[in-house]
């Protein structure tokens, strides 16, 4: 198996705040990789560094055998990203946005038209070609951001919370599409708070907490690491809680007096 992504001693500081603390990550090609962590753990910062949107304070990143520092253009050609804020242009229509993105990736006009028509149809966004993105629901915007991330046929797809705000039917379609991409040899790096989705889709998982990787491996190996007294299958939620730990200081200091 070839390595799709390799991060070594990846660190990001924001002033005194250490957001990502020297993490090591390896993702093989064809893997569906889930990147989990509590709020503020460093997931989005990591994904931004891996996609070249944020420079690391130190450490190295190699994607598809290329160094992100020196070959960023070649890497960006081969990756697709749905960033945290989706990076859409609200005053464009969906076909206009896909056309723009296709041009930025150097696709020719015929190919852009063909792929954007297919993608809009697939995402159920084709019915309102004149509607502005600003008028789309959150779920529709997510679907469009995903369409834009795959229009150039990336070899690695980075998705930051792709299912957030997406309805069950649309989520099902997206999952099917992502699995199809995996079947065709793509690699997917996904962050999500919905552990059930990660458990169902991902073959490998890393958990980050307070900027450090606290668990990393295939789902099976992580399950094997936890003894379950009742003999039931260990869930990802149990793995997550064990890895992140239940710190007493994180618990509410007191009950809400006005609710008692």
């Amino acid at each position: 198996m070839t390595t799709a992504l390799q991060a070594h001693a990846l660190t990001r500081r924001f002033g005194d705040f250490l957001a990502v603390d020297g993490i090591d990550l390896t993702v093989q090609q064809g893997e569906f990789f889930g990147f989990l962590g509590p709020n503020g753990a460093g997931k989005s910062t990591t994904i931004k560094m891996l996609t070249g949107l944020l420079a690391p304070s130190s450490g190295s990143i190699r994607i598809l055998g290329l160094d992100l520092g020196s070959d960023s253009v070649d890497i960006k050609r081969q990756i697709g990203v749905v960033p945290e804020g989706m990076a859409l242009f609200p005053r464009l229509t969906a076909p206009e946005y896909l056309r723009f993105v296709g041009r930025m990736y150097g696709l020719d006009e015929m190919l852009i038209r063909q792929r954007s028509d297919e993608l809009l149809e697939f995402m159920h966004l084709a019915n309102e070609p004149k509607k502005l993105i600003a008028d789309f629901s959150h779920g529709m915007q997510k679907k469009l951001a995903l369409a834009a991330a795959v229009i150039h046929g990336p070899r690695i797809l980075f998705l930051d919370e792709p299912f957030e705000g997406v309805d069950a039917i649309a989520a099902g379609q997206l999952k099917a599409m992502l699995q199809r991409m995996i079947a065709r040899g793509a690699t997917i790096f996904l962050t999500s708070h919905v552990l059930e989705i990660v458990e169902r889709l991902c073959s490998h998982v890393a958990i980050i907490d307070k900027g450090r990787i606290v668990a990393n491996g295939s789902l099976e190996s992580l399950r094997a690491g936890i003894a379950n007294e009742s003999g039931e299958r260990v869930t990802l939620e149990q793995i997550f809680i064990r890895a992140v730990g239940a710190d007493e200081s994180d618990a509410p200091a007191q009950e809400l007096s006005w609710l008692s």
């Binding site: 050609r77 990736y105 150097g106 792929r115 697939f122 150039h152 991409m181 065709r184 040899g185």
Partner: peptide, 13 residues
């Protein structure tokens, strides 16, 4: 749909 395409040409500036 070309979900994983062959590498695209280098886009011109």
């Amino acid at each position: 749909m070309a979900l994983v395409a062959s590498p695209n040409p280098q886009p011109r500036t």
